[in-house]
Design a protein around this nucleic acid. Structure first.
Lengths: 163, 163
DNA sequence: AATTTATGTTAATGAGGCTGACATATCTTC
DNA sequence: GAAGATATGTCAGCCTCATTAACATAAATT
């Protein structure tokens, strides 16, 4: 006797059929994206935990290395977090000697952010396994395929709001 | 007078040159992937906060809908989290009537997980904006391009450990 | 009968977000 | 020059979602 007693049973019946791709919903790519990102961030996570840092530190180190001289406001805009959230992480990176602040030459209220030498090294060390993973995922792919993937990833972003 | 006083200055000099793509490091795709995922999860996040749920609930609802009858152990393996982390989230989803548990027909220690009708509806509602975003990113792409992107995302995953 | 397995539960901890409120220095505007 | 706006920093408290550790229970296996 299973519980398949029909719609008369007191409790709502559980649904046994899997949710499949439909005309409108592409579950396959949703899942691929989830797994890809989960594993993509696991490499740097493993490196970071040795220094007592986390994912948040990684993001800050990455963007400051990519855009030296960016301000705190720039970073908040990029990461889409609040300044209170950033503060703790940024303070730790500055105290640990990975990032330095310099007052803006024009506007002295600004704090322009720069990596130190060890900050640059950390960013490279974190990017290295991620880059190897990307290379592996592209194994033998043509330049056209690489461009298609970049176009796809770029298309996944929010369109910037007109201000 | 800048601080460009050369290597003799007391403190380590900040590095002003941006970190560019090299032969070995592909920063461009690393960043594209970060932004794409950040925005990809922002759609369901906005829906979930209305019901007081979070990202963790989304993941559970999604996978139970995709694989009805999966066990708690299956889910832990898929999400790569601990059972204590899963417990709270799963309990809330069961109490709210989105997921049901049924003792395994062969092994009665198992709890097989199924979506209810409203659980199915929730999963679809969460997937819908993500799927629209994917469609937008693929706008006018050929079937070959879609396959290439899927192959790329799939290649980004960890290789499964042989047991 | 003893052990292993699948699951559940409780308690303490930590990372990394959030809001709100307020402080300070500096730039802009009247 | 005073007033206001802006960029940043800081304090306090809260939330979600993850962690480890320890223990409980029921059911399967040996």
């Amino acid at each position: 006797m299973s519980r398949q007693t029909g719609p008369k049973a007191g409790k709502p019946e559980p649904l046994a059929t899997p949710m499949e791709d439909t005309d409108i919903i592409d579950f396959e790519i949703i899942e691929l994206f989830f797994f890809a990102y989960r594993d993509f961030v696991s490499d740097p996570d493993a490196i970071l935990e040795k220094s007592g840092f986390g994912r948040a530190h990684h993001r800050v180190v990455h963007f400051v290395n990519r855009n030296p001289g960016m301000t705190v406001a720039d970073l908040l805009e990029t990461l889409k977090i609040t300044k209170q959230s950033l503060a703790r992480v940024l303070k730790q990176l500055i105290d640990s000697g990975y990032i330095r602040q310099v007052a803006g030459p024009e506007d002295r209220r600004q704090r322009k952010l720069y990596p130190t030498k060890s900050g640059r090294e950390l960013a490279l060390a974190l990017a290295e396994p991620q880059s190897r993973r990307i290379e592996r995922a592209f194994e033998g792919a043509s330049a056209e395929v690489r461009e298609s993937v970049k176009a796809f990833l770029s298309g996944m972003r929010d369109r910037q709001k007109a201000d």
